Simulated assay, not measured.
Amino acid sequence: MNDASKAHQIQGNILTPAGWIAGTIAFDERIAAIDGAAARPEDNGEDYILPGFIDLHVHGGAGRDVMEGGDAVHRIAAVHARHGTTSILATTMTAPPEDIDKALAAIGGAVRHRGKNEARVLGAHLEGPYINSGKLGAQPNYARAATLAEVQRLEALAPLRVITVAPEIAGHLSLVRALADEGMRVQIGHTLGSYEDGVTALEHGAAGFTHLFNAMSGLHHREPGMVGAALAHAEFAELIPDLLHVHPGAIKAALRAIPRLYCVTDSTSATGMPDGEYMLGRHTVQKCMGGVRLPDGTLAGSTLTLDQALRNLVGLGLDLADASARVSTHAADYLGLDDRGRLRTGAWADLVVLDRDLNLKAVYIEGERCDLNDA
C-alpha cells in the first residue's frame, strides 16, 4: 500500500503519546503524519481515534478454541478484530504434549500469514503446562515441571512471547532466568507460591503476573501471598476487567499499585456466541449470563472483548487516555514493541475510531480497514 492513492486520512480527536490532538491522521501500512493542534476532546463533538487494542491472553472466540489447531486461530483473530483488537497472543491451555504441539504449529502459521479482517497474531502465550497442579483454575490437570530443552523445542513451532510459570516448582527459578535471558516474558501464574517466592522470581527475571488475583495465593496482611508480591513490586501485570473475575475495588487497588497494569480478555470460544456449551482445551464449559464456567462453578475464562474492557475501565472512573493505555500501550511496552500501541509517525497504522459513547465505528489493522460485519 505504498501508492499514495491507497492512503487513508481520517479526522477526529487523536490520542498521541504527547496527548490529544484535534486534527487528521494519514496512513498506509504505517502512520505517515498527524496534523492538528492540542485540544481537549470535551470541547468538541468529534470521534475518538485511539491506538488499536492489544490482547496478550486469548484462548478463543466465535465458537473456536486455540487448542483445536488448524484454522481456529484465524477465526479467533477475526472475531477479536471486529471488537477493535489489532494484535493478539494466541494462548494455549495446559494439555498433553501432542495437543500443545498442534496448537503451536497452527499459531506459527498464523504469525507468518495474517488473513483479511484478522488481528495480527504476534505469537503465543504458553499458559501451561508449567503450573502448579494445586492451582489449576480452569486448566485441565496436565501440569508438569518445565525443562529448557522442551521450551526451546516449542519455541521452534511458534514464537513464545509470553510463558506462564509457577515459580515454586522445583527447577523453575533457574528456568525463569534462562527464558528471560532469551527474551521471553515470563509471567507468574497458576501458583501456590508465597510472597517470598514471587519476589525471588522477579529477581530471577520474571516480568509480570498472569490474570492478577485469579489462580494465585491471595493477599493477607500477615501472609501477603503472590498477590502481595505483585502489588508491592510489579511494574507490569495482566488483569481481566470483565467485573466478574475481579471486584471493582480490587481493580482500583491494582491500578494504584502497578504502574503499567494492562488488560486482557482471557476470552474463550464462547466469545461472541449465544449461551450454551463450548470447549476450552479439553474442558467443556458453559456460557450463561455473560460468564463462562466449569460444571463446578469455577470461572473458566471469559467472553470479554477489549472494546468492552475499555468501557468498563472508563465506567470505573479512568479517563479515556489512561483506559486506552491499559488496553493497548502498556501491553505493547511489555513485549518491547515501540511501533504498536501508540499513534505516532512511523508506527504501524493499528487504530480504532470510537464515537462519543465509546462504540466502535472503524478498525484499521496495519492500514487496512476491517469489515466489522464480516462473519
Results as ranks from 00 to 15, higher is better:
M1C: 05
S5Q: 14
Q11E: 15
P17S: 10
P17D: 12
W20P: 01
F27T: 07
E29K: 14
A38Q: 14
P41L: 09
H59V: 05
G84L: 08
P97I: 03
E98T: 11
A103G: 06
I107K: 10
V111G: 00
G115V: 01
V121W: 09
E127W: 03
G128T: 05
P129Q: 02
I131E: 09
S133H: 12
G137F: 00
Y142M: 04
E150M: 11
E150A: 06
E155N: 13
A158F: 03
E168G: 02
I169E: 13
G171W: 08
A178C: 05
R185L: 03
G189Y: 09
T191W: 00
G198L: 04
T200I: 13
T210Q: 07
N214T: 11
A215Q: 06
H221I: 06
M226I: 09
L231V: 08
L239Y: 13
A253T: 15
D266I: 11
G272S: 09
L280C: 03
G281T: 08
H283D: 00
G291F: 01
R293N: 02
G301K: 12
T305C: 11
T305M: 13
Q308K: 14
G317N: 05
D319G: 09
A321Y: 10
Y334S: 06
D350E: 05
A362N: 13
E366K: 13
